[in-house]
């Protein structure tokens, strides 16, 4: 392909990934200058335009620990949360405080009450002990389910958007843009039941974030995600954090723990398990 075609495709991919216009111009200019200096074609020097654009986009989103966002007020304060099942305490005396601009991970093996805890924080379940204070609107993403099988994604956006009085076109646009960050084209006419498991979870995630809530509670939302989408998901979590949201993710996968602000481990301590 000609340099011109290469540049056009590269710029289009950058635009699709929501890179700022000024940055797109810079990237194009740099590629042109390098091609001129080196005497190579852009394809030779940079490879496939879409792949290079993906690299640039991910470099832009890779945040260094040094560049911390401003930590704001407390958005979620759960204190002394306990839940009993029959006569056994599934979780007991659990605290979690998450401020605006912070992320928290809730970890623990299966059965340790992670989903229960999140449901309590969202107000879906009543605990046997403890209180939750919420400072802002909440968006919740379940592990699965949570959609209407026979509705299309755009109809889901319209339905949820109506809750805050968002006009339908705007809700659909927001939904579509959110979906694009997860590499999903939400304009399809596929009903939710026809979506693959991973795609349906993308829908769930978009629905959680649709009203731009200040607090996001995500219960292992990445079921069925391939590795690329899983990375996109965490990139989105950091972006939400940097925009001042408080994000809580229930997860049993441990790789991203060094980048979250708080890790809540619900694995019961030995002394408690014996109590």
């Amino acid at each position: 392909m000609t340099d011109q075609e290469w540049l056009v495709r590269m710029a289009l991919e950058l635009r699709r990934r929501a890179v700022a216009e000024s940055r797109i111009n810079q990237t194009v200019g740099e590629a042109v200058a390098h091609a001129r200096d080196s005497g190579q074609t852009t394809e030779r020097a940079f490879g496939l335009p879409e792949a290079y654009a993906a690299q640039v986009a991910s470099s832009l989103m890779a945040h260094v620990a040094r560049a911390r966002p401003r930590i704001g007020e407390v958005r979620l304060a759960a204190r002394g949360i306990g839940k009993r099942y029959r006569r056994r305490w599934v979780i007991r005396d659990v605290d979690l405080v998450v401020r605006a601009g912070q992320t928290a991970a809730v970890v623990g093996a299966n059965g340790t009450g992670k989903s229960t805890f999140l449901a309590i924080c969202a107000g879906f379940l009543t605990p046997d002990a403890g209180q939750v204070t919420l400072h802002g609107a909440v968006g919740f993403c379940p592990q699965d389910g949570g959609t209407l099988d026979y509705l299309r994604p755009a109809e889901h956006f319209a339905l949820l958007g109506a809750g805050r009085g968002t006009p339908r076109a705007e809700a659909r646009r927001t939904g579509r843009d959110l979906a694009a960050t997860l590499q999903w084209n939400a304009d399809s006419d596929d009903q939710a039941r026809h979506l693959s498991g991973g795609t349906r979870q993308k829908l769930n995630l978009v629905l959680a974030a649709l009203g731009d809530p200040e607090i996001l509670l995500l219960d292992e939302p990445y079921q069925g995600f391939d590795q690329g989408t899983y990375l996109d998901f965490w990139d989105q979590v950091w972006q939400w954090r940097d925009r001042g949201k408080a994000v809580v993710v229930v997860t049993h996968l441990l790789e991203n723990l060094d980048r979250v602000d708080t890790v809540l481990d619900l694995t019961p301590r030995v002394s408690e398990a014996e109590a």
Binding site: G29, E30, A33, S38, G47, A51, Q55, V56, V64, R66
Partner: peptide, 29 residues
């Protein structure tokens, strides 16, 4: 290759370890 180098330059710039400016060089554009 450029495809390898420029993303690295971008990351270094985002991390504040290098800074960049567009300038006409001594030789040319």
């Amino acid at each position: 290759q450029g495809g390898t180098l420029y993303p690295v330059l971008l990351r270094l710039e985002r991390a504040g370890l290098i800074e960049a400016a567009w300038r006409a060089g001594e030789t040319g554009p």
